[in-house]
């Protein structure tokens, strides 16, 4: 493998990421899945990077989950997206930062639609005006929250207390990076590093001391898929996708998996338990699973945050072996204390 080859591709896919004054929109599901992640993101931006980041209490779901579940029509979705933009406009911001990858995909898709079909934008402006009396401006900059952390990965590294290094061996942790499908597969030039060799998480991992492994099923979907997961009888189909990925990454003995999507860490984490129940297989060391983290959690760990403050107790796969490996102290007694 020649990293130089990847670097050449990474150079081709650099996107503009605003450096301050963010309008942050949360994910609908992340606060249930891994509730510490978004809190950690806000904390890092405000406390470590000193940025102005604003959340609006009237923000709702982007309805992407309903759109992909075939229950929300595209016109409705566009109008709701327009309403989120109006909240941003009213609040005096222009840099729009979604927490969710599917939302990011939705916003990108809607903006691209409006660019190619201005009449669709006009129609939606009209709908929004009639329904709510609101108006909006197109965001000056649209970046996923992981793009922001990517942009400031060096600043975070400079203030880090820990590195993604195995303190027993001195070797970098082997990291599987898993990018949410809607980050760049639909619009490769909207993702840092493109779609085939995305750099957004790799950049963080490398900067914080880890080593990314490139395994054959790296590009495969985690299996979330929306309607596939939502119908119980189809859920095995979701499971099979994750299973395929684990089988493919196992020979590389990854220490952790890092993700930037709401669904992926949930599924890659919980399915390891289900696969163990169904197939009797575990993919980590010493009869454990492979811990799956969000990039905010990893950033929080690197910055020395208390693992229970960033929500690692919410994971199915225990994080303690990895914390031990890095040398991050934790109080096991307080893991589940409220």
């Amino acid at each position: 493998m020649r990293v130089q080859g990847k670097q050449n591709i990474w150079k081709e896919y650099q996107k503009e990421i605003a450096d301050d004054k963010y309008f942050y929109v949360r994910s609908c599901v992340r606060q249930n899945f891994f509730p510490g992640s978004e809190v950690t993101f806000l904390r890092i931006l405000r406390e470590v990077l000193g940025k102005n980041i604003f959340e609006h209490p009237c923000h709702t779901t982007c309805t992407g989950i309903g759109y992909h579940g075939d229950i929300v029509p595209f016109d409705t979705l566009m109008t709701i997206v327009a309403r989120q933009f109006s909240l941003m406009t009213e609040s005096g911001f222009e840099n729009f930062v979604p927490s969710c990858i599917t939302s990011f995909g939705i916003y990108t898709e809607v903006l691209d639609t409006w660019e190619h079909f201005p009449e669709a934008e006009e129609k939606v402006r009209n709908y929004l005006k009639k329904a709510t009396g609101r108006e909006f401006k197109i965001p000056g900059n649209l970046a996923h929250a992981s793009d922001i952390i990517y942009k400031f990965r060096k600043e975070i590294a400079a203030k880090s207390k820990f590195k993604l290094i195995n303190r027993n061996t001195g070797m970098p942790l082997k990291v599987v990076e898993h990018i949410g499908c809607h980050y760049a597969k639909m619009f490769p030039d909207k993702g840092v590093g493109g779609a085939e060799y995305p750099y957004v998480l790799t950049g963080m991992v490398e900067e914080w001391g880890g080593e990314v492994i490139d395994y054959p099923e790296r590009r495969h979907c985690c299996g979330f898929g929306f309607r596939q997961y939502l119908v119980q009888a189809n859920r095995g189909y979701s499971l099979a996708c994750s299973y395929k990925k684990f089988e493919s990454m196992a020979p590389y003995k990854p220490d952790i998996i890092i993700t930037n999507c709401p669904g992926c860490p949930m599924f890659l984490d919980r399915w390891q338990y289900v696969i163990n129940e169904m197939e009797g297989k575990k993919y980590g060391e010493n009869g454990q699973g492979i811990p799956v983290f969000t990039y905010e959690e990893v950033a929080g760990l690197v910055l020395g945050y208390n693992p229970w403050d960033i929500g690692l107790q919410m994971h199915q796969i225990s994080c303690e072996p990895v914390l031990d490996k890095i040398g991050i102290p934790y109080d096991i007694e307080s893991k589940y204390k409220v």
Partner: peptide, 13 residues
Amino acid sequence: ARKKEEYGYGIYD
């Protein structure tokens, strides 16, 4: 061939 990124020319030995 590097333009067909998915084939990994210039990346995979």
